[in-house]
Design a protein around this nucleic acid. Structure first.
Lengths: 319, 319
DNA sequence: TTGTAAGCGTTATCAG
DNA sequence: CTGATAACGCTTACAA
């Protein structure tokens, strides 16, 4: 593997001149520069990023740390982030599990976007304190160098359930996500408050886990119960899809027998029968917005006022 | 941000002794070691990975470079890779777009797994030649330090169509993926050859693009045509799902009016009505196998005989 | 316009 | 068992 030393030698210049030429620093004689560039090409030279990073104390990498690689939301958010970072000549590094904290602590990234409930508040606060800006999604977190962006889960679900009550639905159930999930809890709060506000005193609570499989199993249990609820609000779209599938297998009519809605507005919702009513934000836009804010923070080292993403209700056929 | 120098100073030892202690090199007096470890904890010290990487000429990172972050296959393969790497104390770095080639060329990774048709053969061969082992998925590529792992697309589709012919289906169509996709072309070859082998001289070819949306649009066109085919083999499951949705909206019975099958065995296929018949491999296993092979190559610097993943036909309800 | 040399934070060789 | 010191490959004052 050739180094800048080899390039310099071949071009007959010093290392620094080679460096200047390769980095387009203006004060290099055009002819010298050409010689150097030719040498680099001849040797198939490419600078060693690790060495550059050590010297410059920046890496040009932004870490995006996720809980797992699956899920239709991640992919959209990631795509938004990728686009924005690429425009600004930053690399996107997506990681998960133990690698995430390694990369963070070892400073192989200049900043991080966290989409992973497993990375504890304490860890993040600790890392951010050392000067690495951290953007947390879907979790509220305060601290030096820490920024967070959350969807208004509670408000959106409230508004939606309110709408359904006005439409005349009376008997509600909530199909939950994991009970330690920030967004599940806030969605449930919005759900409960809407019912309370409109004097609906009872509702059922069905435990699930945000997965298609989980929704499906819940659905099986529901059809076998004596009097199923008239409306099931699902904590996310994936569980709603599983639920729908189970109901359909038992010839339950949606929305006539049981109405359903979800949260997230995943792509697939539009390709179900009936099409899934849901609540959602523009995830790609969320990604670009967050990435943009993080870059501004890194570059100006100043806190920006960050706008949280705006959600909306997407009425389709399932209720 | 504290460095090893600060730790050494606080513990009253030299930098090298501090380094030994922090890296568990045996020849450090237990008491000294404890002092150093305490100092490190007190300062909240964590080694700078970039500096370590420069010195040791390894990063402990494996890059996984994908075309985009969406898609149910990616996520499973990635999860398999992640698991295996984590077991072996390597970090997984997933990237896409321009970042991929940056990270590769700048040597911020010790090896790479490529799942991205956009990274050209020439680029990969060039990088691998410099000593960085590269594992290419879903593409055949030869060269020093290059390894590839492919699914037997052709053989599997052949076997499947053969089965369908024996079942009695006569009038076939192929719903394609992008025409420059390696796997699409091989699947089509298998499809064609099976028909030819069994004397079925004609078939229809419907252009699509591997997406749900694409399958849906194709489905719309098919139901509006005069005599739709009796069997539509889809180049992947996602387009099959879109297709099914379009047919169902027009009350076409699957499989009674039109039978359908796909490729990939994505999770969702089981949650459709009817459940999707498909061909697939165990993607998580594929990921772990490839990661394992890559690690062996990195560690032993010797070429292993690599087993390609074995696929199977998953008969469900759609044909 | 070009060259010399220091230094980024580590690891690792070699003496002591 | 511990400490100087060179080196990894690069950038960047500063000097020439």
């Amino acid at each position: 593997m050739p180094t800048i030393k080899d390039v310099a030698k071949l071009a007959g210049v010093s290392i620094s001149t080679a460096s200047y030429a390769l980095n387009n620093v203006p004060n290099v004689h055009p002819e010298t520069k050409e010689r150097i560039l030719n040498a680099a090409k001849a040797l198939n030279y490419y600078p060693n990023g690790v060495a550059r990073n050590l010297k410059t104390k920046r890496t040009g990498n932004i870490g995006v740390f996720v809980y797992g690689f699956s899920g239709p939301i991640f992919s959209d958010v990631l795509e938004g982030i990728r686009k924005k970072l690429q425009e600004n000549d930053y690399n996107i590094i997506v990681s998960s599990g133990k690698s995430s904290s390694n990369l963070l602590r070892e400073r192989q990234v200049d900043g991080a976007i966290i989409f992973d409930a497993e990375l504890s508040d304490a860890t993040l606060i600790n890392i951010a304190k050392h000067g690495l800006p951290v953007f947390v999604l879907d979790r509220k977190l305060q601290g030096q160098n820490i920024f967070s962006s959350v969807i208004d889960n509670e408000g959106l679900v409230f508004k939606f359930i309110e709408k359904m009550i006005q439409k005349g639905y009376k008997d509600y159930a909530y199909l939950s996500g994991p009970e330690d999930a920030f967004n599940n809890n806030h969605r449930y709060d919005g759900f409960k408050q809407a019912l309370e506000t409109y004097g609906i005193r009872t509702h059922r609570y069905i435990k699930s886990d945000f997965t298609i499989q989980g929704g499906y199993l819940a659905g099986k249990a529901i059809v076998e119960s004596k009097n199923p609820p008239r409306f099931i609000y699902c904590a996310n779209d994936e569980s709603a899809i599983g639920l729908m599938q189970a109901l359909k297998e038992h010839h339950v009519q949606i929305p006539n027998d049981i109405a359903i809605a979800g949260f997230d507005n995943i792509y697939l919702g539009e390709y179900m029968s009936p099409k899934l009513t849901t609540i959602g934000i523009n995830h790609v836009l969320w990604g670009t917005t967050v990435a943009d804010a993080l870059l501004k923070i890194i570059q100006n080292k100043e806190t920006e006022n960050f706008e949280h993403p705006e959600g909306s209700i997407i009425m389709r056929e399932s209720c």
